Amino acid sequence: MKNLLRFVVPEATPLSYKERLRAAAGAWIGILVTGLVGYIAIGAGLALPALIAPMGASAVLLFAVPSSPLAQPWSILGGNTVAAVIGVTIGLLVPQPFLAAALAIAVSIGAMITLRCLHPPSGAVALTAVLGGPAIHDLGYGFIVWPVLGNSVALLALAVVYNNFTGRPYPHAIRPQAAGHGTKDPAPVERIGFSSSDLDDVLKEFDQVLDIDRDDLETILRRTELRSYRRRATHLDCANIMSRDVIGVAPDDSLKNAYSLMRNHHIKALPVTNDVAEVVGIVTQTDFLDKATWTHGHPRIGFLQRLRLIATGKQAPNDTVKDIMTSPVQTILPTTAIEDAIIIFAEQGLHYLPVVDANQKLTGIISQSDVLVGMLADKAASNSDSDASDAIR
Rank of each mutant, 00 (worst) to 15 (best):
S369H: 10
A380W: 05
A380L: 11
M375L: 15
A391L: 15
L350C: 01
A341P: 02
S389H: 12
P354S: 04
V356Q: 00
V356F: 00
Q330W: 09
A381D: 10
P354R: 04
S327R: 04
A346P: 07
A341Q: 01
A388H: 11
F345P: 07
I365K: 01
A388G: 05
E339G: 07
E347L: 08
D390F: 12
L376Y: 08
T331V: 12
I342N: 12
E347M: 07
T326W: 07
P334E: 05
D370E: 01
I366S: 00
G364S: 00
D385E: 15
A358Q: 15
D385R: 14
D390C: 10
P334N: 00
T363W: 01
D387S: 11
D390P: 08
V373C: 02
D370R: 04
S389R: 11
A358C: 09
D390W: 11
A380R: 11
L333Y: 10
T331H: 03
L353C: 06
Q330R: 13
I366V: 09
M375N: 07
S386G: 03
E347P: 02
L350T: 03
P334Q: 02
V356S: 05
D340E: 11
D390A: 15
Q330H: 12
S386Y: 15
L362E: 04
L372R: 06
S386F: 15
I332V: 10
S384F: 13
S386E: 15
E347R: 02
A341W: 06
D378G: 09
D357K: 05
D385P: 03
A391I: 14
D387F: 09
S382R: 10
L333R: 12
A358W: 10
I338R: 03
Q348T: 08
G374L: 08
Y352W: 14
V356C: 02
D357C: 04
V373M: 09
D378I: 02
G364L: 04
D357T: 06
E339F: 03
A337L: 10
K379G: 14
D387T: 09
S389V: 10
K379H: 13
A337H: 09
L362V: 01
A388E: 12
S384D: 15
L353W: 02
D357L: 01
T336D: 00
L333C: 06
T336R: 02
D357S: 05
S384Y: 12
D357V: 03
A377Q: 14
F345T: 03
L362P: 07
A346M: 14
I365F: 04
D357I: 08
D378Q: 14
S386T: 15
L376T: 13
D390V: 13
T363N: 08
L353I: 07
S389M: 10
S369W: 04
Q368I: 06
S367R: 00
D370G: 01
L353V: 08
E339L: 02
Y352I: 01
Q330P: 05
P328Y: 00
S367C: 02
K361N: 01
A377H: 11
A391H: 13
G349C: 06
D390M: 14
V356E: 06
A337R: 08
V371T: 07
S384P: 00
A358E: 15
A377E: 13
V371C: 07
V371W: 01
S386D: 14
I342P: 03
A377G: 09
